[in-house]
Simulated scan of single mutants.
Amino acid sequence: MIETRAPGKLFVAGEYAVVEPGGSAVLVAVDRFVRVRVRDAAANTLRSDHYTEPLTWRRDGEGVAIDGAREPDVVGAALDVVEALAAASGRPELTLDIAVESDLDHVDGAKFGLGSSGAVVVALVHALATAHDLPLDDQTLLRLALLATWRINPSGSGGDVAASTLGGWLAYRSADAAAALALRDRVGVAAAVAEPWPGLLAEPLPTPGALALLVGWTGSPASTAALVERSRRSRAASDADFRSFFAASDATVASLADAIRADDTARIETAIRSARAGLGRYAALSGIEIETPALTALCDLAEARGAAAKSSGAGGGDCGIALAGPDVDRAALAADWSAGGIRPLDLAVVTRPDTTRSTP
Protein backbone atom coordinates (compact mmCIF):
# COMPACT_ATOMS: atom_id res chain seq x y z
CA MET A 1 0.00 0.00 0.00
CA ILE A 2 1.09 3.55 -0.73
CA GLU A 3 -0.07 6.46 1.39
CA THR A 4 0.52 10.11 0.63
CA ARG A 5 -0.69 13.25 2.30
CA ALA A 6 -0.77 16.88 1.24
CA PRO A 7 -1.43 19.88 3.48
CA GLY A 8 -3.99 22.62 3.25
CA LYS A 9 -3.06 26.23 2.61
CA LEU A 10 -3.72 29.81 3.58
CA PHE A 11 -3.07 32.89 1.48
CA VAL A 12 -0.91 35.46 3.24
CA ALA A 13 -0.99 38.10 0.47
CA GLY A 14 -1.68 38.46 -3.25
CA GLU A 15 -5.32 37.39 -3.43
CA TYR A 16 -7.16 38.20 -6.68
CA ALA A 17 -4.04 39.57 -8.41
CA VAL A 18 -2.50 36.07 -8.46
CA VAL A 19 -5.31 34.70 -10.65
CA GLU A 20 -3.89 36.74 -13.52
CA PRO A 21 -1.02 35.10 -15.44
CA GLY A 22 2.18 36.37 -13.86
CA GLY A 23 0.42 37.52 -10.69
CA SER A 24 2.16 36.75 -7.42
CA ALA A 25 1.26 35.69 -3.89
CA VAL A 26 2.70 34.48 -0.62
CA LEU A 27 1.08 31.40 0.89
CA VAL A 28 1.67 29.03 3.76
CA ALA A 29 0.89 25.33 4.14
CA VAL A 30 -0.85 24.25 7.36
CA ASP A 31 -1.16 20.98 9.22
CA ARG A 32 -4.55 19.81 8.06
CA PHE A 33 -4.21 17.12 5.42
CA VAL A 34 -5.74 15.18 2.58
CA ARG A 35 -4.60 11.56 2.66
CA VAL A 36 -4.65 9.17 -0.27
CA ARG A 37 -4.15 5.40 0.01
CA VAL A 38 -3.53 3.31 -3.09
CA ARG A 39 -3.28 -0.45 -3.19
CA ASP A 40 -3.38 -3.23 -5.79
CA ALA A 41 -6.90 -4.57 -6.24
CA ALA A 42 -9.05 -6.86 -8.36
CA ALA A 43 -10.95 -3.89 -9.82
CA ASN A 44 -10.37 -0.16 -10.24
CA THR A 45 -12.28 1.34 -7.32
CA LEU A 46 -12.49 4.79 -5.75
CA ARG A 47 -13.66 5.72 -2.26
CA SER A 48 -14.00 9.26 -0.96
CA ASP A 49 -16.15 11.36 1.33
CA HIS A 50 -16.88 13.37 -1.80
CA TYR A 51 -18.91 10.45 -3.16
CA THR A 52 -21.94 8.92 -1.50
CA GLU A 53 -20.75 5.39 -2.30
CA PRO A 54 -17.66 3.64 -3.70
CA LEU A 55 -17.26 4.13 -7.43
CA THR A 56 -15.36 2.37 -10.18
CA TRP A 57 -13.03 4.04 -12.63
CA ARG A 58 -11.80 2.94 -16.04
CA ARG A 59 -9.56 3.94 -18.88
CA ASP A 60 -11.28 4.79 -22.13
CA GLY A 61 -10.18 6.24 -25.43
CA GLU A 62 -10.16 9.79 -24.08
CA GLY A 63 -8.49 9.21 -20.73
CA VAL A 64 -10.04 8.17 -17.42
CA ALA A 65 -13.76 7.99 -16.64
CA ILE A 66 -15.31 7.60 -13.18
CA ASP A 67 -18.51 5.60 -13.41
CA GLY A 68 -21.30 7.22 -11.40
CA ALA A 69 -19.62 10.61 -10.92
CA ARG A 70 -22.14 13.40 -11.44
CA GLU A 71 -19.68 15.66 -13.24
CA PRO A 72 -15.96 15.88 -14.05
CA ASP A 73 -13.92 16.60 -10.94
CA VAL A 74 -10.33 16.96 -9.79
CA VAL A 75 -10.08 13.29 -8.80
CA GLY A 76 -10.76 12.16 -12.35
CA ALA A 77 -8.47 14.87 -13.73
CA ALA A 78 -5.63 13.75 -11.46
CA LEU A 79 -6.10 10.14 -12.50
CA ASP A 80 -6.07 11.24 -16.11
CA VAL A 81 -2.75 13.14 -16.02
CA VAL A 82 -0.89 10.37 -14.20
CA GLU A 83 -2.31 7.66 -16.44
CA ALA A 84 -1.22 9.68 -19.48
CA LEU A 85 2.28 10.10 -18.06
CA ALA A 86 2.49 6.40 -17.17
CA ALA A 87 1.46 5.37 -20.68
CA ALA A 88 3.98 7.76 -22.26
CA SER A 89 6.68 6.35 -19.96
CA GLY A 90 5.93 2.75 -20.95
CA ARG A 91 4.53 1.73 -17.58
CA PRO A 92 2.02 -1.15 -17.50
CA GLU A 93 -1.59 -0.47 -16.56
CA LEU A 94 -2.39 -1.11 -12.90
CA THR A 95 -5.61 -2.12 -11.21
CA LEU A 96 -5.93 0.03 -8.10
CA ASP A 97 -8.18 0.71 -5.16
CA ILE A 98 -7.95 4.41 -4.24
CA ALA A 99 -9.17 5.95 -0.99
CA VAL A 100 -9.25 9.70 -0.38
CA GLU A 101 -9.73 11.15 3.12
CA SER A 102 -9.61 14.75 4.33
CA ASP A 103 -9.33 16.51 7.66
CA LEU A 104 -9.22 19.97 6.10
CA ASP A 105 -12.81 20.60 7.13
CA HIS A 106 -14.42 20.52 10.57
CA VAL A 107 -15.97 17.30 11.87
CA ASP A 108 -19.42 18.84 11.39
CA GLY A 109 -18.66 19.33 7.69
CA ALA A 110 -18.02 23.08 7.86
CA LYS A 111 -15.44 24.23 5.32
CA PHE A 112 -12.58 26.33 6.66
CA GLY A 113 -11.28 27.45 3.25
CA LEU A 114 -7.98 25.58 3.45
CA GLY A 115 -7.89 24.56 -0.22
CA SER A 116 -9.11 20.97 -0.22
CA SER A 117 -9.24 20.49 -3.99
CA GLY A 118 -5.58 21.46 -4.44
CA ALA A 119 -4.50 19.12 -1.65
CA VAL A 120 -6.58 16.28 -3.11
CA VAL A 121 -4.90 16.65 -6.50
CA VAL A 122 -1.37 16.83 -5.08
CA ALA A 123 -1.80 13.82 -2.78
CA LEU A 124 -3.48 11.77 -5.51
CA VAL A 125 -0.95 12.59 -8.23
CA HIS A 126 1.88 11.78 -5.81
CA ALA A 127 0.34 8.44 -4.79
CA LEU A 128 -0.48 7.32 -8.32
CA ALA A 129 2.95 8.30 -9.65
CA THR A 130 4.57 6.31 -6.84
CA ALA A 131 2.40 3.30 -7.69
CA HIS A 132 3.53 3.53 -11.31
CA ASP A 133 7.19 3.93 -10.23
CA LEU A 134 7.37 7.40 -11.76
CA PRO A 135 9.81 9.47 -9.68
CA LEU A 136 8.73 13.11 -9.56
CA ASP A 137 10.67 16.14 -8.40
CA ASP A 138 8.67 18.95 -6.79
CA GLN A 139 8.37 21.00 -9.96
CA THR A 140 7.10 18.07 -12.03
CA LEU A 141 4.60 17.13 -9.32
CA LEU A 142 3.45 20.75 -9.26
CA ARG A 143 2.96 20.92 -13.02
CA LEU A 144 1.07 17.65 -13.17
CA ALA A 145 -1.20 18.80 -10.36
CA LEU A 146 -1.73 22.17 -12.04
CA LEU A 147 -2.72 20.50 -15.32
CA ALA A 148 -5.28 18.42 -13.45
CA THR A 149 -6.61 21.38 -11.45
CA TRP A 150 -6.86 23.72 -14.42
CA ARG A 151 -8.67 21.10 -16.49
CA ILE A 152 -11.57 21.49 -14.04
CA ASN A 153 -11.11 25.11 -12.95
CA PRO A 154 -8.99 27.10 -15.39
CA SER A 155 -9.68 30.34 -13.52
CA GLY A 156 -7.82 29.21 -10.40
CA SER A 157 -4.38 30.62 -9.62
CA GLY A 158 -2.80 27.29 -8.65
CA GLY A 159 -1.38 28.81 -5.47
CA ASP A 160 -3.16 26.22 -3.35
CA VAL A 161 -1.59 23.47 -5.46
CA ALA A 162 1.88 24.96 -5.00
CA ALA A 163 1.48 25.24 -1.23
CA SER A 164 0.26 21.64 -0.99
CA THR A 165 3.21 20.51 -3.11
CA LEU A 166 6.09 22.32 -1.43
CA GLY A 167 4.77 23.00 2.07
CA GLY A 168 6.00 25.74 4.40
CA TRP A 169 6.05 29.42 3.46
CA LEU A 170 6.03 29.97 -0.28
CA ALA A 171 6.44 32.70 -2.89
CA TYR A 172 4.29 31.87 -5.90
CA ARG A 173 3.80 33.37 -9.36
CA SER A 174 1.12 32.00 -11.64
CA ALA A 175 1.51 30.70 -15.17
CA ASP A 176 -1.06 31.08 -17.95
CA ALA A 177 -3.54 28.24 -17.37
CA ALA A 178 -4.98 28.39 -20.89
CA ALA A 179 -1.50 28.20 -22.41
CA ALA A 180 -0.52 25.26 -20.18
CA LEU A 181 -3.67 23.33 -21.10
CA ALA A 182 -3.16 24.08 -24.80
CA LEU A 183 0.42 22.85 -24.51
CA ARG A 184 -0.78 19.61 -22.97
CA ASP A 185 -3.34 19.13 -25.75
CA ARG A 186 -0.68 19.83 -28.37
CA VAL A 187 2.26 17.75 -27.13
CA GLY A 188 0.86 15.47 -24.42
CA VAL A 189 1.34 15.40 -20.65
CA ALA A 190 4.92 14.07 -20.56
CA ALA A 191 6.27 16.69 -22.96
CA ALA A 192 4.16 19.49 -21.46
CA VAL A 193 5.58 19.12 -17.95
CA ALA A 194 9.13 19.09 -19.35
CA GLU A 195 8.79 22.33 -21.32
CA PRO A 196 9.21 25.85 -19.88
CA TRP A 197 6.09 27.46 -18.43
CA PRO A 198 6.61 31.21 -18.72
CA GLY A 199 5.86 33.03 -15.48
CA LEU A 200 5.55 30.02 -13.18
CA LEU A 201 7.46 30.33 -9.91
CA ALA A 202 7.14 28.32 -6.70
CA GLU A 203 9.94 29.22 -4.28
CA PRO A 204 10.16 28.18 -0.63
CA LEU A 205 10.56 31.00 1.88
CA PRO A 206 12.06 30.78 5.37
CA THR A 207 9.74 30.77 8.36
CA PRO A 208 9.65 34.19 10.06
CA GLY A 209 11.55 33.81 13.30
CA ALA A 210 9.70 36.21 15.60
CA LEU A 211 6.16 36.02 14.26
CA ALA A 212 3.51 33.39 14.99
CA LEU A 213 0.76 32.70 12.45
CA LEU A 214 -2.65 32.84 14.14
CA VAL A 215 -5.80 31.85 12.27
CA GLY A 216 -9.44 32.57 13.01
CA TRP A 217 -12.52 31.26 11.24
CA THR A 218 -15.59 33.45 10.90
CA GLY A 219 -18.09 30.59 10.66
CA SER A 220 -19.18 31.59 7.14
CA PRO A 221 -17.82 29.42 4.33
CA ALA A 222 -17.12 31.29 1.09
CA SER A 223 -16.95 30.14 -2.54
CA THR A 224 -13.59 31.17 -3.96
CA ALA A 225 -14.53 30.20 -7.52
CA ALA A 226 -17.72 32.27 -7.41
CA LEU A 227 -15.96 35.33 -5.99
CA VAL A 228 -13.15 35.13 -8.53
CA GLU A 229 -15.66 34.80 -11.38
CA ARG A 230 -17.54 37.89 -10.14
CA SER A 231 -14.22 39.70 -10.03
CA ARG A 232 -13.45 38.79 -13.63
CA ARG A 233 -16.85 40.00 -14.86
CA SER A 234 -16.43 43.39 -13.19
CA ARG A 235 -13.07 44.29 -14.71
CA ALA A 236 -14.20 45.70 -18.02
CA ALA A 237 -15.65 48.74 -16.24
CA SER A 238 -12.23 50.26 -15.54
CA ASP A 239 -9.27 48.29 -16.82
CA ALA A 240 -6.76 50.97 -15.82
CA ASP A 241 -7.89 50.83 -12.19
CA PHE A 242 -7.64 47.05 -12.14
CA ARG A 243 -4.17 47.14 -13.68
CA SER A 244 -3.16 49.58 -10.97
CA PHE A 245 -4.42 47.17 -8.29
CA PHE A 246 -2.56 44.22 -9.82
CA ALA A 247 0.70 46.20 -9.98
CA ALA A 248 0.32 47.43 -6.40
CA SER A 249 -0.51 43.92 -5.15
CA ASP A 250 2.54 42.43 -6.85
CA ALA A 251 4.72 45.16 -5.33
CA THR A 252 3.33 44.40 -1.86
CA VAL A 253 3.93 40.68 -2.34
CA ALA A 254 7.52 41.31 -3.50
CA SER A 255 8.11 43.51 -0.44
CA LEU A 256 6.62 40.85 1.85
CA ALA A 257 8.73 38.06 0.33
CA ASP A 258 11.90 40.14 0.65
CA ALA A 259 11.03 40.98 4.28
CA ILE A 260 10.46 37.28 5.06
CA ARG A 261 13.81 36.36 3.51
CA ALA A 262 15.46 39.02 5.67
CA ASP A 263 13.37 38.03 8.73
CA ASP A 264 12.49 41.71 9.12
CA THR A 265 9.49 41.70 11.45
CA ALA A 266 8.56 45.36 11.03
CA ARG A 267 8.58 45.14 7.21
CA ILE A 268 6.55 41.92 7.28
CA GLU A 269 3.90 43.58 9.42
CA THR A 270 3.86 46.65 7.18
CA ALA A 271 3.36 44.47 4.10
CA ILE A 272 0.48 42.57 5.73
CA ARG A 273 -1.29 45.83 6.54
CA SER A 274 -0.62 47.11 3.01
CA ALA A 275 -2.12 43.91 1.58
CA ARG A 276 -5.25 44.39 3.69
CA ALA A 277 -5.63 47.98 2.51
CA GLY A 278 -5.13 46.87 -1.10
CA LEU A 279 -7.90 44.30 -0.83
CA GLY A 280 -10.15 47.01 0.58
CA ARG A 281 -9.52 49.14 -2.50
CA TYR A 282 -10.14 46.14 -4.75
CA ALA A 283 -13.43 45.41 -2.99
CA ALA A 284 -14.60 48.97 -3.65
CA LEU A 285 -13.48 48.73 -7.26
CA SER A 286 -15.10 45.36 -8.00
CA GLY A 287 -18.20 45.58 -5.83
CA ILE A 288 -17.25 42.35 -4.03
CA GLU A 289 -17.54 42.05 -0.27
CA ILE A 290 -14.10 40.69 0.59
CA GLU A 291 -13.79 41.75 4.21
CA THR A 292 -17.12 40.87 5.82
CA PRO A 293 -18.09 42.42 9.18
CA ALA A 294 -16.83 39.26 10.90
CA LEU A 295 -13.48 39.47 9.12
CA THR A 296 -13.23 43.16 9.98
CA ALA A 297 -13.83 42.28 13.64
CA LEU A 298 -11.20 39.53 13.46
CA CYS A 299 -8.62 41.92 12.03
CA ASP A 300 -9.46 44.84 14.30
CA LEU A 301 -9.30 42.69 17.43
CA ALA A 302 -5.88 41.40 16.35
CA GLU A 303 -4.61 44.89 15.56
CA ALA A 304 -5.79 46.08 18.97
CA ARG A 305 -3.51 43.45 20.54
CA GLY A 306 -0.57 44.54 18.36
CA ALA A 307 -0.73 41.88 15.63
CA ALA A 308 -0.83 42.56 11.88
CA ALA A 309 -3.99 41.03 10.40
CA LYS A 310 -5.97 40.60 7.20
CA SER A 311 -8.47 38.31 5.52
CA SER A 312 -7.05 35.21 3.85
CA GLY A 313 -8.08 34.00 0.42
CA ALA A 314 -10.99 35.35 -1.59
CA GLY A 315 -12.73 36.67 1.52
CA GLY A 316 -16.48 36.83 1.80
CA GLY A 317 -16.17 34.61 4.88
CA ASP A 318 -13.78 31.79 5.75
CA CYS A 319 -10.55 32.69 7.55
CA GLY A 320 -8.50 35.65 8.62
CA ILE A 321 -4.88 35.59 9.73
CA ALA A 322 -2.80 37.52 12.22
CA LEU A 323 0.98 37.62 12.50
CA ALA A 324 1.80 38.07 16.16
CA GLY A 325 5.15 39.02 17.60
CA PRO A 326 6.44 37.99 21.03
CA ASP A 327 4.82 41.03 22.68
CA VAL A 328 1.32 40.00 21.60
CA ASP A 329 -0.76 38.20 24.24
CA ARG A 330 -1.88 35.35 22.02
CA ALA A 331 -4.14 33.74 24.62
CA ALA A 332 -5.91 37.05 25.16
CA LEU A 333 -6.34 37.50 21.41
CA ALA A 334 -7.82 34.01 21.11
CA ALA A 335 -10.23 34.88 23.91
CA ASP A 336 -11.17 38.12 22.13
CA TRP A 337 -11.88 36.24 18.94
CA SER A 338 -13.98 33.63 20.72
CA ALA A 339 -15.99 36.30 22.50
CA GLY A 340 -16.63 37.91 19.11
CA GLY A 341 -17.93 34.70 17.54
CA ILE A 342 -14.68 33.89 15.74
CA ARG A 343 -13.26 30.40 16.14
CA PRO A 344 -9.48 30.29 16.68
CA LEU A 345 -8.09 27.41 14.64
CA ASP A 346 -5.28 25.27 16.05
CA LEU A 347 -3.10 25.29 12.94
CA ALA A 348 0.66 25.16 12.50
CA VAL A 349 2.88 25.62 9.48
CA VAL A 350 3.90 22.29 7.99
CA THR A 351 7.13 21.91 6.08
CA ARG A 352 6.28 19.53 3.24
CA PRO A 353 4.14 16.57 2.14
CA ASP A 354 5.30 12.98 2.56
CA THR A 355 4.83 9.47 1.19
CA THR A 356 4.90 6.06 2.82
CA ARG A 357 4.93 2.65 1.23
CA SER A 358 4.02 -0.58 3.01
CA THR A 359 2.85 -4.08 2.23
CA PRO A 360 -0.92 -4.67 2.10
Rank of each mutant, 00 (worst) to 15 (best):
S249C: 06
K310D: 08
P293V: 02
A271G: 10
L201C: 13
A212K: 14
A210D: 15
L205A: 11
G199N: 11
A240S: 12
I290V: 14
A283H: 08
S249N: 12
A236C: 01
R232Y: 03
R235K: 12
A236K: 00
P208S: 09
R235Y: 01
A314M: 05
A309E: 07
P293G: 12
E303V: 08
A262E: 13
A283K: 06
E291L: 08
A297C: 12
R276T: 05
A254Y: 05
S311Y: 03
P208I: 04
L211Y: 03
L295H: 08
K310H: 05
L279W: 04
A225K: 15
L214H: 12
G209D: 05
A266V: 09
A212M: 02
A212E: 09
T296I: 01
R232N: 07
A271S: 13
S220K: 14
R232F: 04
L295G: 06
T252M: 10
F245S: 08
T265I: 00
A284Q: 12
T292M: 08
A254H: 13
R305F: 02
A294W: 00
A210M: 02
A210I: 06
T292L: 08
A294H: 04
A271N: 07
R235W: 08
L298I: 02
A225V: 11
L285W: 02
E203M: 12
R261Q: 06
R235E: 08
P204F: 02
L213P: 15
G216K: 05
T224D: 11
F246D: 09
A284C: 03
S234M: 04
G216L: 00
A308L: 00
G219S: 11
T265C: 08
A248R: 15
E203T: 12
A236G: 10
A248V: 00
S249D: 01
C299I: 05
K310S: 09
L285G: 05
A226P: 14
P206F: 08
I268F: 01
S231W: 00
S234K: 01
A251G: 13
P208L: 07
L298P: 11
A202S: 14
L279D: 02
C299K: 01
L279C: 10
D258Q: 14
A237M: 00
R232G: 05
L285R: 10
A283V: 02
S249L: 01
I288Y: 03
R230N: 15
F242G: 08
A302W: 13
P204V: 02
A210P: 10
I260R: 05
I268L: 07
A254I: 01
L279I: 02
A210R: 09
A262T: 03
I260F: 03
S249K: 00
T207P: 06
G306C: 11
D239F: 05
D250P: 07
K310Y: 01
A304M: 06
L205K: 06
E291W: 01
I288G: 05
I290G: 04
A294T: 04
L213D: 07
A294C: 06
D264H: 13
C299H: 04
I272S: 07
A248T: 02
D300R: 15
L256T: 03
R232D: 01
R235I: 02
R230C: 12
A257P: 10
P204T: 11
G287A: 03
A202G: 08
T218Q: 07
I260N: 05
